[in-house]
Nucleic acid binder design. Structure first.
Lengths: 342, 342
DNA sequence: GTGAAAGCGCTAACAA
DNA sequence: TTGTTAGCGCTTTCAC
């Protein structure tokens, strides 16, 4: 059932029917009622393509998920974020298209998205410390919101981010309060800004407590179990072993746990570990450990807020720039304990 | 830059330009070259909406991800699957739109997707044991591929699935071979077909070995850490304790591990646990344990195959029904060991 | 308060 | 080999 059929069926013009359905004021209430009824009965839904062609609005938001290489696993954070955003889009009649972008040909992907008229705006995921995408999108003229921030940017942009720096400062302070001085930071790829900020937070706390920042105790790479395992294994063998680990995701923490077990140590007793994870954490608190909070998925909330921000921006471009900093309330300790060297 | 501008710029008709770009044979090679060059220079990309309006094809595939309730976490499996599928779509010039559907209003979501002309086909995720969606989609006339199978369906449909039944039979057999007779199955929600099939696989092995199937040792619910913990805790206190656990996801296994630890037992020594997970598993093999295989994300491969199947179907509806059964090669033992009762 | 007509950017008969 | 024309389903001036 399309508009033409519906209008013929009603003995009205397409114009009137369209107006009635879209809430234009110049339609009499009686016809509006009639039209709405018939539309519901006939299960009429306006054709999105036609609508978007006529209005010039795509009624679609694009999410571009970067994947470093073909075989990289997709960060489950995106799923939660997208779930939140999609909720908002649905409310406003928008669709959500997903593009997986290998980082190499990102530029052409954004350009093609824009040129194809496929979206009214995009959410930019996984920003690096410095982001060529910002300039690119500005040049193209596509509204966007960054999920995360960009440390080195001289021009304003819309963003929503967790307070990674503060969370890691807190976590580090917690370990210091427990008496630790040799704390290992097993961090994500520090060319990605979230990891960079986490590192800064870690260093903030160390510096404030006049503790030395030892490069040897800091590692940065893709957050995999293997990375956690290998790094922790090596660190547990060194002469200057850490007494505590700060893990930048629960996946990496699994590896750390494995290494600790293999070294014949007990987590939470011989070695302390604090895990930070903004995603819904699958870990419950084992009991004896401090834990900041553990709400369900603040990432989903971030998705909701980002989508909202983007739609507002599209609606009214003068609302610029917007941004929101969420407290990273999922920072939690899986296991902490007295400082002790292996 | 749109077709009109491009054609004017070239002094050709829109038709010719369109034909040249779309590879129609009746265009002379020389003009085709010229057109292609100009298009590349002008950074011309055909407007998807217009194209789809003109052809009646949406050039878009929809993925509908069901989420049981608002606060449910999104299964990370979807992210991997979608990543695989998106790869295929890109190759064929298709877009991918994502819809998160609360299970309550699924029907209206599918109907509205179809009526809006937004997609040429859909991938159906998380099929239940019996699926009203199949009939619905058939009625609507929307091509679809089910990611998973439906046990109770009397009409054919396209599907791609992992061999869950076989995997669980194997895993169970492995435990039986190690001497276990009281094996607990911590399974997903058995109204979902994947969980149902896993249970059948478990029962297959038990029956073949003439072992009793004890209802008390089988649990079924959403695969959360908490579910694993609570169920395992309870089971470890009963008079008729299991000596082994078969966990239907690594998340649930984390809970089981916690319960085992709290009971003062050692995993892999006092109690055996086998984890099945089709997603990329974050666990490495701890060493002493049998492990079927551990390739990276067979789920992504499933996504690729499903997308391929759907596009083929759209292209040629006579290719019906298609299906593929993938061996669930990520079944792996995190820890198995001698049978012993707590 | 309602309708006729043009047009969004493309494709696809049909003509030439 | 190329061009003319109509039309996909909607919105939106403009006229009544």
């Amino acid at each position: 059932m399309n508009l033409k059929q519906l209008s013929e069926h009603l003995g009205l013009s397409q114009t009137t029917v369209s107006r009635a359905l879209n809430g234009y004021p110049e339609v009499s209430e009686s016809t509006r009622k009639r039209v709405q009824l018939a539309a519901a009965e006939g299960n009429y839904r306006p054709n999105l393509r036609a609508m978007s062609l006529a209005t010039g609005k795509a009624m679609t938001i694009g999410h571009v998920i970067p994947v470093a290489d073909q075989h990289d696993v997709v960060n489950p954070i995106f799923a939660e974020f997208v779930a939140g955003a999609s909720q908002v889009y649905k409310q406003h009649g928008y669709e959500l298209t997903l593009t997986i972008a290998e980082t190499r040909n990102e530029e052409s992907i954004y350009r093609s998205i824009a040129a194809r008229g496929a979206v009214d705006g995009v959410i930019v995921h996984s920003p690096k410390r410095t982001e060529p995408r910002l300039a690119l999108l500005r040049e193209i003229g596509l509204p966007f919101v960054v999920h995360g921030r960009v440390s080195e940017s001289d021009t304003p942009y819309n963003w929503i981010d967790m307070n990674n720096r503060r969370a890691f400062k807190q976590a580090t302070q917690l370990l210091i309060d427990l008496g630790h001085t040799d704390i290992a930071l097993i961090n994500g790829d520090e060319s990605l800004n979230f990891a960079w900020l986490r590192r800064l937070g870690f260093e903030d706390a160390m510096r404030e407590n006049k503790l030395p920042i030892k490069k040897a105790l800091m590692a940065s790479a893709d957050l995999t179990e293997t990375f956690g395992y290998q790094t922790a294994s090596a660190l547990l063998k060194c002469s200057d072993c850490p007494t505590a680990f700060l893990a930048s995701s629960y996946v990496v923490a699994l590896g750390i746990r494995r290494a600790i077990g293999q070294a014949g140590l007990q987590m939470g007793k011989d070695i302390s570990v604090i895990i930070h994870d903004d995603e819904l954490s699958y870990f419950d608190n084992d009991g004896a450990i401090p834990q900041f909070t553990a709400t369900r998925s603040s990432v989903r909330e971030a998705g909701i807020l980002a989508a909202d921000m983007l739609l507002k921006q599209i609606d009214d471009p003068t609302l610029f720039p917007q941004n929101t900093l969420l407290e990273s309330h999922l920072t939690m300790g899986l296991s902490t304990g007295p400082a002790k060297r292996a």
